[in-house]
Write a protein that binds this DNA or RNA. Structure first.
Lengths: 133, 133
DNA sequence: TATAGTGTACTATATAATGCATACAGAGGA
DNA sequence: TCCTCTGTATGCATTATATAGTACACTATA
């Protein structure tokens, strides 16, 4: 809905994982879950830095990677905005890519002793949490 | 099951996550999945270092944390051994583990431009096929 | 006893990450 | 224009991470 949703949902932990990686992953997840729509303004780098009590450069590191991944767009003087979805969603190539990733995930799940079907359910639940009905 | 199972299943990636954290998490998962039984000998620190081409000190960092978490026991001059299961790893932790993997998969999917929900459907479909040989 | 294999413990070096402070440059509104 | 907000860019200090090399302490076995 609003940028506050992003800020309120990010939780930084002390697990040895770099802060900018945690930011990158969690924001990616939130955007995928539909917390913001393409074109919506992202929370300002300074907003994130202040809200999460993290350095501006650390936020910038995360935002830079998000832009490199095509998830957001940085505009000097204006702000950061959610990019259009990667356009790869249509076509046969996308299906092949999805299947490849699916097989990979299944292999990982089996190696971990996790039931793939259960995992799939959780993916659906976590990814669809904030989808607008 | 042998220690080689551990070595063969560990995959280190270039995602900004420290190597010792990747080792810690993946070994934890493998042990939780029953790759080795309590009392079994873990791969030697030097074995891990050589097999994965990382420094002995880095492996030690991971093993130290695994011991601190109660997952393994380090015995000087003899080796490292799988500790008794913390008893908590079987109930709730399994769900948490599934959720963690689900979140990782979602992040990966988004980075690849794949819709998580679509991916979940494909996982269900493909897993159903392969589970009935 | 002697040897090989184990975990343990340092030094040293290089790079990355983080925080803090200080700016600079472009966009947009009063 | 002036002001404020934005992203962008430094410099500096500190800590964390990773690698390399060397050595020590302990265990088990030949």
């Amino acid at each position: 809905m609003h940028t506050e949703d992003i800020l309120n949902r990010i939780r930084l932990e002390n697990t040895g994982v770099p802060i900018y990686v945690q930011l990158r992953e969690q924001i990616l997840r939130l955007l995928g879950a539909g917390a913001l729509s393409p074109g919506d303004q992202m929370p300002t780098m300074r907003e994130v830095a202040v809200a999460l009590k993290v350095d501006l450069n650390t936020v910038r590191h995360a935002y830079d990677e998000l832009e490199r991944l095509g998830a957001i767009t940085l505009v000097r003087g204006r702000g950061s905005f959610v990019a259009e979805p990667p356009a790869a969603m249509n076509g046969r190539a996308a299906m092949a890519q999805t299947d490849t990733l699916a097989k990979q995930v299944i292999a990982t799940a089996l190696a971990m002793g996790v039931d793939p079907a259960t995992l799939a359910d959780r993916i659906t639940a976590l990814a669809g949490k904030e989808n607008k009905p």
